[in-house]
Every structure is written in C-alpha cells, then in structure tokens.
Design a protein around this nucleic acid. Structure first.
Lengths: 328, 328
DNA sequence: CAAGATTCTGAAACCGATTCCTGACTGAGG
DNA sequence: CCTCAGTCAGGAATCGGTTTCAGAATCTTG
C-alpha cells in the first residue's frame, strides 16, 4: 500500500497538519514533535504525493522542455544540462520533441500547459504570435530565440558570424556561400542576417544557397551547389550539415581546406574528432541550458533575475583543420 | 484566471458530475446535455487539471524515462520514439539522464516514483537487486537489459554478435579483439559473453581488451591496444568507440579495412556517413522504444500483452566499408 | 394510462496534501 | 496566583477533479 501523510500522523501521534508543517518548515514546530514526526516518516518511508501537493499549492515542480529534434547532437547537450540543473531544485523535466513541426509544437505546449510550472523552449519553430499567446498563461523562457518580451537565453550568433567572417577574410576569401537551416529557425535567420551585414561591411561577396535540412544529408545535398558557385569557402547552418558538405566534397574530389574551406556551427562533440577536424562557431549548450533553468526559476519565484529577462551567452570560433587560405 | 470544471458546469447549466461524465464517456450522457457541455467547454477553453485528476484516479499519465547518457547518439533515437509513442496515448515523458552513474540512477528513480505510472529504464546501470527492489512498487520495463522477472524489451545482441563473427570469419579473420563498454552495462556483458562462446565454437581467437569509455575518446584510446595485439579485426562496444578506433588507426597509419577491420554496434546515424563507412550491428532504437512503451502501457492496463512480458527485437549486421578480407 | 424498468442527473464523498483559523497550552510579568 | 501575550497543534476548508449512490426523469409495456 501507499503511505500517506495520515499514516505518518497516526504513527507519530500528531495531526496531519503537524506532519505537513514539520516537513515544510521544521522550525515552526516544537523540537519534540519534530523529532517524532521525522522518525515516523523515516520509519514508514513516507514521500509526499506530488499530485496532491500540486493541487493545493498550484505548483507542479515540473518544467516542460520542448526541442525541435533530439537527433541533432546539439540538443542532447542542452537537454542534459537542463535536466541536471532542474534536478538540483527538485524540478522534473517533461520532454517533448516536435520533430521540427511548428504546429505540433504549439499543440503540444497547449496540452502540457496545466502540467508544468513553466516552459523552456529550445529553438522554437512556431510563429512569434503563437508563442506570444502563451505569455500570461504560463511562464516561458526561450532558448536561442528572441520573441518580443519573452525572457530568453541566447547565444550571440551575430558575434559568432563576425568572428567566422573575419577569420575567412584574413585567409583571403573574397566570396563565401551560406547553406541555410530550417526556415522556421530563428537562429538561422539571425545567422543569415548577421552574415549579410558582415559581408557587406567587409566587402565580401555572399552567395545564399537557400535552406537545407539541418542534418548530414542536407549538407551533402548542398555540397554540389557550393561547388557550382564561385566561392572558396562555405558556412553551414550547423555542424551536421558541415560534415555532410565535407563528405560530399571528398566524393567529388574537392579537398578541404585546400580547395574549399568549411565552417560549421555549434561545435558538437564529433566536430573535433572527424578528419579534417571541423572549424566551427561554438555555442556552449550546457551553459545555455543551465542559464535557461535559472532564468525560468527566477521567473517562477517572481524575482526577475539580476540579469534581467534576457541573457546572452558568448560564442567562440574554434579554428581547426577545415579552413585554410583561399584557393588562388 | 484558470477555468475549472465548475465554470463549465455553471455555463452549461448542469452539475460538475455531468461535465466529468461527458468528457470521460460521452455515450453515457444524453445527446442534449452532451451538446451543451461540449459547447460550454469549448467556449471557455477548458482543459482538465492533471494534478486533480491524478489525485482521484491514482494515475498520473506520466512515465519516467531513464537513460544513462543522452550524449550517446543511440539514446536520442530511443527517446524520440518513446516520447512520440507515449504522446499517442496521452502520456507524458519525464526524462532523467543519469550520466552513467548507477547510484544516481537508483536515487532518481526513487524520487520520481510517486510522479509516474511506471518507468522505462534504458540500459539501466544499477545492480540487479536495486532494480528488483522497485518491482511491486511501480511498473517497470527495462530496455536492453533483462533482470529477473522484470518485463523487458531487448535486442538480440547474441545473434548480432553471431552475424558479425560469421562475417569476419568468412573474410578470413582468425583473431579478433573486443573493446568493451561500461562494466555496469548489461548489453556489454551480453555482447562479451556471446562473443566468447561464438569465437570458441568457430575456432577464432578472441582478445579481450577490457573496458573503455563508451565514446569516441574511449575508442581512440583503445586503438593502440588493438594495434599491439595479434589481431586483424576489432569489435567495438558501440559505434562511437568504433569511430574513435578508426580515427586513431588513421593517425597511426593503419588503414581500414586493409590492415584492420572494424565493426561497431548500434548503427547510429553517422555510421553510414563517415569514411570509411562503418560496418556495424544495427539495433533499431525506434522499434525498441516503441515496443517498450507498448509493453509498459499493457502492464498499466493489467493486460499483459499477447507477447508476454518480454519482447526481443532483431539485430542486423550492416556490412559497409570498414570490414574487408584479413590481412595476410 | 399506470406501473415497472431503464436511463440520466445531481449531491456528496473522496483522493492527499496545504494552510487558515481557532483554541489550548506555555511562560512571563504583575 | 492570576492575567496576558505568544507559541504550538489540531480541525476543517480547500484545491479540481472522479465516482458512487440515490433520486428524478424518461421510456416500455400491459
């Protein structure tokens, strides 16, 4: 049988109120009582029923975590960090994978709204107005996306792009291509925008190759477009794409970085392990996840964190073997 | 304000019981009433409070999902499948990543036990007796591990090993090495055991290189051991290790598969995309996850599935470029 | 059309906690 | 020794649903 607070109360010879109080704020109860209650609780192995607690307090101690695609190695890093940080505060994580589907995303959030105290939306794909519709209803923190007044934790992608373009320019590249990610991805839009303005200001020609799937095959498919374009370097939306590019370049006999330089995004674990090792713009998924949890928890406590409702994390260009001087 | 069942009842001009009934079993209520209730519910945008429901029914509609390490690309596949299958039945997934720590695993399960209807334990690392201690307390399904009478969904790793050894033997290999995974991994034990018996019966010499970390670096570290051993082929505990092996072999100037053949395990997405493409023993994480959810849900309905409390999924050797005829 | 069978509906108990409110007890001070 | 303030503990209401039970409404049937 399940043991409830009543069992503990009976065993300790006190009322349920006293048990509840003892567990919630031990100092509000006399030492003798406290002693007996704790002993009784330990004896029967009592642990409170989360549903009952949620019902009275209105707090579930759950957070909803929404990711577009767990198969993208960047997200597990974030999810791990979120899960572990949330646990520290006794919060559990309800995970939802939307498979890059904006409408599924909205629907799933709707369904979960009563089961969680708030949401962490990683790279949400839904439209701004849909996301905005949740404000007021439930606390939300977006990760790597900025939507109006919604608190967010983002990486400074613009700065990352700046570093990458600077790096390529220094290597003598005068024309570079960009392989885009999902149209619905805010990160993609921000990178593309940053890239345009950066290239313009540095006098570098930018060839936009449109949107490709944010995975290995998407990159491989785009590789031939790159080779057909008058460029000596290519930036990919993420590392998986970059790996796909490199792989297809090899097949086509285009050597990296001698003939073409490749820059990825994210610095997934494998990026530094393949050959050639991938030059990439790193974002620290673990820091991102941790900061997102902290921000959401601040929100839940009604203390808007000292850092305000948005936090920006640095990005860093990691130069490895996939970039080199521009081909003549 | 939040809308409750009372608001719906008032608006529809019926009692809360009728609203509850209408939503739970529409056929038990007169069409006219049903009509009004549904209209009212839609109008105010009612959705039931999960905590309240859990309190009365004793069912949370949550399942606990425990994985050792989400960063291992095999697990996201499983998690995605589990999440999506669970959603079909309106179950939510509480995700826990134990970071390969057996004691954390037990502790986390304990903490979640009141919040879920049951657990899915993917490749649990805890000791048999610890896992057994949960039986009776809460429904549990283990994935890729068999513990006494606990219902489980596993891949036929022994058969996978059989296929791999047969493949290598046919290629003329007479001595092979095995790079092990985590000591706490049941899959590792099963593979090692199957490997031993298979090699014995086929007259192939097996060199056990002990346990390595189940990731790229673990494989890279083991590569030198492999080269120092009198073998012409190596089986790794998983694909990440295999990739690490290949990478380090390249650095050492040992060509794959000419000088040494490499076989991985799992068939993670990248396995078919690197060069040389990895020969590997595939296990379908998606099928595994889906079957695990179905089994757990059967358990929760007290109908032990037609397939009984254990289900075995096939494994399949995928022959690609990393294996070839044994070096002379 | 009345009586009995059947179908629907509403009132109320209940799930397991939290928390407000009140009364009992304690100790201090006069 | 009595009063009063302050501390501590218990009773009861409450959260938002589900479900049992009994009575009301409807339908059959003779």
């Amino acid at each position: 049988m399940v043991v409830t607070i009543k069992d503990v109360a009976r065993l300790a010879g006190v009322s349920v109120s006293s048990v509840s109080r003892t567990l919630a704020s031990p100092e509000s109860v006399r030492p003798g009582t406290r002693e007996r209650v704790l002993r009784a609780a330990a004896e029967v192995g009592y642990s409170p029923n989360a549903a009952a607690r949620a019902l009275t307090t209105g707090r579930t101690y759950n957070v909803g975590l929404v990711v577009p695609d767990l198969a993208n190695p960047f997200f597990p890093t974030v999810v791990k960090a979120i899960q572990s940080r949330a646990r520290e505060f006794d919060y559990s994580v309800l995970l939802v994978d939307t498979d890059e589907d904006p409408s599924a995303e909205v629907e799933l959030i709707r369904k979960l709204v009563k089961q969680v105290d708030g949401f962490l939306l990683c790279g949400p794909r839904a439209a701004d107005e849909d996301l905005r519709s949740f404000i007021g209803e439930t606390p939300v923190v977006t990760v790597n996306r900025r939507v109006g007044p919604i608190p967010s934790v983002i990486c400074d992608h613009t700065d990352g792009v700046r570093q990458a373009v600077g790096h390529l320019a220094a290597l003598g590249h005068r024309a570079i291509a960009y392989v885009g990610g999902p149209r619905a991805s805010a990160v993609n839009r921000e990178r593309a925008r940053g890239l345009r303005s950066m290239c313009t200001s540095m006098g570098i020609e930018l060839v936009d190759l449109g949107n490709a799937a944010p995975n290995f095959d998407g990159g491989a498919a785009a590789a031939d477009l790159v080779l057909a374009a008058p460029v000596t370097a290519v930036l990919a939306y993420n590392d998986l794409q970059a790996l796909g590019l490199v792989s297809r370049f090899k097949e086509r006999g285009a050597s990296v970085p001698e003939q073409i330089s490749v820059v990825g995004f994210d610095d997934i674990p494998l990026a530094g392990q393949v050959s050639p090792r991938l030059t990439t713009i790193a974002q620290r998924g673990d820091l991102l996840g941790r900061a997102a949890v902290d921000l959401l928890l601040d929100l839940l406590q009604d203390r808007v964190g000292a850092g305000g409702p948005r936090r920006v994390m640095p990005t860093q260009l990691i130069v490895r073997g996939s970039t080199g001087p521009a081909a003549a």
